[in-house]
Nucleic acid binder design. Structure first.
Lengths: 352, 352
DNA sequence: TTGAAAGCGTTACCAG
DNA sequence: CTGGTAACGCTTTCAA
């Protein structure tokens, strides 16, 4: 009789009440513990009779295999970390939900890490490592050193909507620059000549990508004297930014390019309410993301929608592939945004 | 020499590369493994010399205690499950983020479960149990049987925005009925006599609570012939619902009560755009939640805001208390919503 | 203060 | 196909 079983019998009625284990099931079913383990695995060998007895015993006792113990022995926690931050421009609650659901279909659970500030990422990473997750999806930028730490622990990482031109990393992102270039092309094609840009937070890579794309295209089209003001992705900051633009740019701009939809909406409201400007007749406004409110009739935003469904799908499948096969070479997947010709800006007639 | 150490020496260079454990740190530091364990605990006894040697060795090897193994021995995973669903009326991405951050401050990680449909809850619960979480916060309704299962496993549960009049459960919620009663009182006080209600999904408890509250108060104030149509909490469904109302109610209603803000916004857009009705002059619209878009200038919704900060705070602290002390008696905390007198409805002058 | 050794509840290997 | 037994990496007595 094993020590484990002995102790069990002695401790039978002590507090805290013991949780039911595979040993209990084995005893009730009259089989060995390893048999119980096998029955609860997918491709293991067990006779029909054995299965029946074990399952019935397990049901009677309300037994469920302990995933923690399993993770310890198999070296697979079946958990992945998803790291987000306030800055993440949480444009869609959907992104998180979709990613979680997709992982779940593959038997993988999501351990969520939400940072207040990006500087908290070190302690977060510590936790990620302690929990021995099988992989990481991060919507937060990591330093080279942080990346090395994960690499050293052999934990595959997928960057969501951020990348790095030189590092060998896996990333899934929307082509921010391409989207902005299209928006600019449309605006300029329709005759706009004076531009202002509302960028996002300084340390948001998404924002810098977008702003860079817009500026490049504007430069190519010989548009100059562009005023850039900074917001924080919020509606309120969009409103404030527009007021700032009007006060600092004379004559007023003909078009405003906001780094995301929320600020574009704030911008429109400020233009209409405070400055009595008609959109798009007197001023054009474009955003980026394709969030729900962009479709509200009051705004009908001209914007570029991120294909969140396909992006989250890609992030999940890329990570799972790399968990199964760690030697897979790095891959960067870039998705074009969906171009939405809304009513908040005067565009060309071109379909391109 | 232990078996473990022996095997280690033999296996030294095999694939997969071994992860660094407390044994490795102990060896390098020239101390026992238990010493290493103690150094990494909060209130354990260890001399300064010991600490220094262990920490330096640990740093050199990049050692991090394995939370999975710790969970196995301590019977505490330091993880809680948070269960949400599409139906959850995910009005704030903030709720989830706030809850996660607050748990994190207490050294607790969030394992996220996102259901497509509420009927998937059984298999989800199975996973929750397998991972031996220390507690559960659910924004999904559980059946009595499901609740019993968790109770039997001695896992404390907090219901978020749902409750049950008879069961002994812990819950945190916004007082939906009170909020609706206030909205109705305001509308009736301002002279509205003909009402329509846009309810949420049939199986959403939040929606039924809100609708009931509104209907009760309307009844008390002798308002009759109320048309009720059903939406799914979305903007589009709000638009569709308003069209349905206009087609089925003659003369048109003077006020529409939507079960959430998104539908209220859809309702306003449909009223303005399709039926050329002025809001609030020709028709009043109220919502519920206090989401960001409710504050957009184009809508300026009259609504009731859920105090998400305090609610998530309450959910977290209640759950932690019950993890520490399982015998704590059940508690239901009900928060009043913040009353917002927006411009989408004609209200009384009363401040009450 | 320190170390040895016994588990925690699984899976995996190896005989029978 | 089945059972015995050794890990997985930690915490926790219990002696020294």
């Amino acid at each position: 009789m094993s020590e484990q079983v002995k102790r069990r019998i002695e401790n039978g009625n002590k507090i805290p009440r013991r949780r039911v284990t595979s040993y209990d099931v084995a005893e009730l079913a009259g089989v060995s513990q390893s048999a119980v383990s096998r029955v609860f695995q997918t491709g293991a060998s067990a006779s029909k009779d054995m299965r029946d007895r074990v399952f019935s015993a397990a049901n009677k006792l309300g037994y469920r295999p302990n995933a923690i113990a399993r993770g310890l022995i198999t070296q697979r926690s079946n958990m992945v970390a998803v790291i987000i931050s306030r800055q993440t421009n949480l444009y869609y609650p959907e992104v998180l939900v979709q990613i979680t659901q997709r992982f779940s279909e593959h038997g993988i659970r999501v351990l969520l890490f939400a940072l207040e500030h990006e500087r908290d990422v070190n302690s977060t990473l510590d936790q990620v490592l302690q929990y021995r997750v099988d992989g990481v999806v991060t919507a937060v930028t990591l330093s080279h050193e942080q990346l090395k730490t994960l690499e050293h622990a052999e934990i595959p990482v997928i960057f969501y909507n951020r990348t790095h031109p030189e590092w060998l990393i896996n990333s899934v992102r929307c082509d921010q620059e391409e989207g902005e270039r299209w928006l600019v092309g449309q605006l300029v094609g329709a005759g706009h000549k004076r531009f202002a840009i509302i960028s996002g937070p300084e340390d948001s890579q998404v924002s810098t990508d977008r702003t860079r794309g817009a500026l490049q295209r504007l430069g190519e089209l010989d548009i100059e004297d562009i005023l850039i003001v900074t917001g924080d992705y919020s509606y309120a900051s969009g409103r404030a930014a527009f007021a700032e633009i009007i006060h600092n740019m004379e004559p007023h701009p003909e078009a405003v390019i906001a780094a995301n939809d929320m600020m574009a909406i704030g911008c429109i409201d400020e233009a209409r309410e405070t400055f009595q400007l008609r959109v798009p007749d007197e001023i054009s406004v474009v955003g980026f993301d394709g969030v729900g409110p962009a479709r509200f009739a009051a705004y009908d935003l001209s914007t570029v929608r991120q294909p969140v469904g396909r992006m989250s799908e890609a992030a999940v499948s890329m990570l799972i592939e790399r968990i199964e096969n760690p030697d897979l070479s790095p891959e960067k997947r870039v998705f074009s945004g969906e171009r939405i010709r809304g009513g908040s800006a005067r565009f060309t007639d071109s379909k391109i």
